[in-house]
Design a protein around this nucleic acid. Structure first.
Lengths: 212, 212
DNA sequence: TGGCCTATCGGGAAAGACCCTGATGGGACC
DNA sequence: GGTCCCATCAGGGTCTTTCCCGATAGGCCA
C-alpha cells in the first residue's frame, strides 16, 4: 500500500468496480466518476495524484476530462485506460496530456505497476503502443502515400528531396550527375505540379511533410 | 535470469565493466564494444535482442550506431544510456530509433527492469525525461534555450524565422516594415554567426531545430 | 506509326539572393 | 564622452533562381 491517491473515471460501472477491487489493496482510491462533468468536478475537489481515465465516454471522452483538469490542476497525472489501441486515440490522449496509455486487457498487477510508474513521473505504454508512440515522435508515422507526392515522377521526387535539404541547383546537379539545366526543368515541373512559386516554399512544403 | 540477449556499447571501459557486472546475473551478455565501428559490426554479427548504448562516443555517438544497425537489423531494440539528460540528446536518440532513454545515475535494479521492459517492446524513460518526451510529442517542445540561437539578436531571430518559413526577402521586408537591404544585412549576420552559406541551408537548419 | 510521358540539355532574360564597403542614429556600458 | 552593439539603409557587383523559348532521345501504348 502506497500513499498515492487514485481517482477512477469510466462510464462502465462494472469495470469501475473491478478496477477498484483490484487496486484498492495498494492505493487509496479517493473517488470515482462515470461521466465527464462529474469527473472534472470531483477531481478538482479531491485533487488525486493519479487519475485513471477511460478514453471513450459519452460527453467528450477522456480528452475532455484531461484537458479541463490540467488547466486548473496541471500537476495531476493521467493514465489513459482503453479498449482501443488505435493510433488516433493514443495521439489524442497524449496531446491532451495523458502520461501513459494502457489497454484494458492489462493484467491487474501490471496496472498497479503502471499506476506506480505514472505516479513517479514515468511514461507508461502498453508494449504494442510503445513502438507506435516512438515512431510518431520520430516523425516516421506510416508512409501515408501522399497523393501530391505521387503526381511527381521519381526523378522529380529525387530532386525535390535534395532541394528540400537546402542544396543549391549546382550541388543537386553534381550529386545526380546531370546538368544544372535539367535540375531547373525538374524544379519547374515540381513547382508547377505542387502550385508553389519558389524553391523556398518548396523547402517548407517538404519539411512540413517530413520529406527530408 | 531471462534469455534476453544483451549487448553493451560504451567508450568507458570501467562503466562497461560495471554494467556487465550488474546485469550478467540476469541477462546473457553476448558482447560489448567501446567504439562505434566495432559496435555496429559486432551487433550485426551477434544479433542481440537488446543493445544498451551510450549517447556520447567518439566516432559519431550512439545515434550512428543505432541508425546503422537498424538499417540491416530493424528488430534490434536500443536502450540509450547517458550522463546527459538534455533534450537535444534525447530527441536525437529517439529519432534515430532508440526505444528508451535512461541516465547513468539509474540504480542497477532499475536498469535491469528497464532492459526487461525494452525487450518486451515497452518504452522506457527516466522519470525526468518522460515528461519532456511527451511534451515534445504533443508538439509543445520547450523553447529550449539554444546556445546557437542565443547568439543572434532578437531582430535576427525574427528574420530567421520568416526566412525559414520560405518567405522571400521582399516579403520579409514588407512583413517587418523594413527595407530589403536591412533584411539582407540581418540574413548575412545570421549566416555568418551560424556558419552557414545560404538561405537554403539556413532554412534546413531551422527546420531541423523546429524553429518555425 | 504516331502520340504521350519522361529525362536530358541549351540560350537568354528578369528577378532574387548574396557579399562587400560604408553610413547613420539610438541605446547601453564604463 | 567615448566605445560598443544593434537596427537601419545604400550602392554595386556576382552568382543563383526562375521562367521563357526551344531541342533530342528513349519508353510505353493503342
Amino acid at each position: 500500500m502506497t500513499d498515492t491517491t487514485l481517482f477512477l473515471v469510466d462510464d462502465h460501472e462494472l469495470f469501475l468496480s473491478g478496477v477498484q477491487n483490484e487496486l484498492s489493496q495498494q492505493y487509496p482510491i479517493v473517488g470515482t466518476a462515470s461521466d465527464v462533468d462529474e469527473a472534472i468536478a470531483s477531481i478538482r475537489q479531491l485533487e488525486p495524484e493519479v487519475v485513471l481515465v477511460d478514453v471513450h465516454m459519452p460527453g467528450g471522452g477522456g480528452v475532455t476530462v484531461i484537458s479541463n483538469v490540467l488547466q486548473t490542476h496541471p500537476e495531476t497525472r493521467f493514465l489513459a485506460l482503453s479498449v482501443s489501441d488505435s493510433p488516433e486515440d493514443v495521439i489524442a490522449m497524449i496531446r491532451a496530456g495523458a502520461r501513459g496509455y494502457v489497454t484494458k486487457s492489462i493484467a491487474p498487477a501490471d496496472l498497479a505497476d503502471a499506476v506506480r510508474r505514472v505516479a513517479d513521473g514515468d511514461a507508461v505504454f502498453s508494449p504494442r503502443l510503445a513502438g507506435f508512440v516512438l515512431d510518431a515522435f520520430g516523425g516516421a508515422i506510416s508512409p501515408a502515400a501522399d497523393p501530391e507526392l505521387d503526381q511527381l515522377t521519381p526523378r522529380e521526387q529525387e530532386v525535390l528531396r535534395l532541394i528540400a535539404r537546402g542544396l543549391a541547383y549546382k550541388q543537386v546537379a553534381r550529386k545526380l550527375s546531370i546538368s544544372i539545366k535539367t535540375v531547373e526543368t525538374h524544379v519547374s515541373s515540381v513547382l508547377r505540379k505542387l502550385q508553389l512559386s519558389s524553391r523556398h516554399e518548396l523547402a517548407r512544403w517538404a519539411s512540413d511533410r517530413r520529406i527530408i
